[in-house]
């Protein structure tokens, strides 16, 4: 009994602590609800004149698709700003002689932050979906672990791209344009607001081979239209890009540290 009471107490204290941030949390979720509501109105209007499916998506599916892409975007960590800051103000020098690899240290740091955000956002997201369009049609709970795996891979790819871009701070004073442009690439070619299946054919083919699609589009499409063959191809792409950006980030980091030593920070 005592063991449980201890954890309950910790929970209570932390809840009390977090009451301070409640307004922040509420604001984020209000925004989530709002943007999906706008999308619901937009797509309801479009489906009213185009019939029941567009590019293979029903209204129900498109709203759930957007909830998943929005989940990934809203749950991202602040790794870009944090790492850029560490590099610019020289704090990174103190982290080099610690017994860990900086990149993986940042990853675990980020995953903690993402975990908390994702957990709350999933609850809100599912509630929004049920409220707006009802349960996702043809959803099978047996597929859930596969979808979650792909979602997690998407989040990690997102992390490695972010950290690769942020490490450019070793050489550039103002590197935030990279961040904006990447965000917009995910927004457009990553299918964040509109599934890639609706792109013109030629563009669809291109987009499906680019990494941005595997941050948002890949997992979101699996969530609403699952098939094992799609799962295999999506995850293979994800693993490939994950490895690629992992290597890129490690290389940039190593080069950056060398530049740091030469310039003396």
């Amino acid at each position: 009994m005592k063991k449980i009471a201890k954890y309950l107490h910790v929970m209570k204290v932390s809840a009390s602590n977090n009451l301070v941030y409640v307004s922040n949390f509420i604001a984020r979720n209000f925004f989530f609800m709002f943007i999906i509501y706008i999308m619901l109105m937009l797509w309801t209007n479009i489906y009213s004149q185009k019939g029941s499916t567009i590019a293979g998506f029903s209204l129900n599916q498109i709203i759930w698709y957007l909830i998943v892409t929005e989940l990934v975007t809203l749950s991202r960590s602040n790794v870009f700003t944090e790492v850029s800051r560490d590099v610019k103000n020289g704090n990174i020098a103190y982290m080099l002689n610690k017994p860990y690899n900086y990149i993986f240290y940042s990853l675990s740091n980020s995953l903690g932050e993402i975990g908390v955000k994702l957990f709350t956002n999933v609850i809100i997201g599912v509630a929004i979906g049920f409220l707006y369009v009802g349960p996702l049609i043809n959803f099978d709970f047996r597929h859930l672990p596969f979808i979650l795996l792909s979602l997690l891979l998407g989040i990690i790819i997102n992390f490695f791209i972010h950290i690769s871009l942020s490490l450019t701070a070793f050489w550039l004073e103002e590197n935030s344009p990279f961040f904006w442009i990447y965000q917009k690439l995910v927004f457009t070619l990553g299918g964040m607001l509109i599934p890639i299946d609706m792109f013109p054919n030629w563009l669809e083919k291109i987009a499906k081979n680019l990494p941005f699609a595997y941050v948002t589009y890949g997992p979101a499409r699996l969530a609403v239209k699952f098939s094992y063959s799609d799962f295999v191809s999506t995850v293979l792409f994800q693993l490939g890009y994950l490895l690629l950006f992992l290597i890129i980030s490690l290389l940039i980091f190593r080069k950056g540290v060398r530049a740091l030593n030469v310039n003396g920070g």
Binding site: L42, I46, I194, M198, F199
Partner: peptide
């Protein structure tokens, strides 16, 4: 975004 949408529908 709007270009893709209007590729799929004529008016919204």
């Amino acid at each position: 975004f709007w270009w893709i949408l209007f590729e799929n529908v004529e008016s919204i």
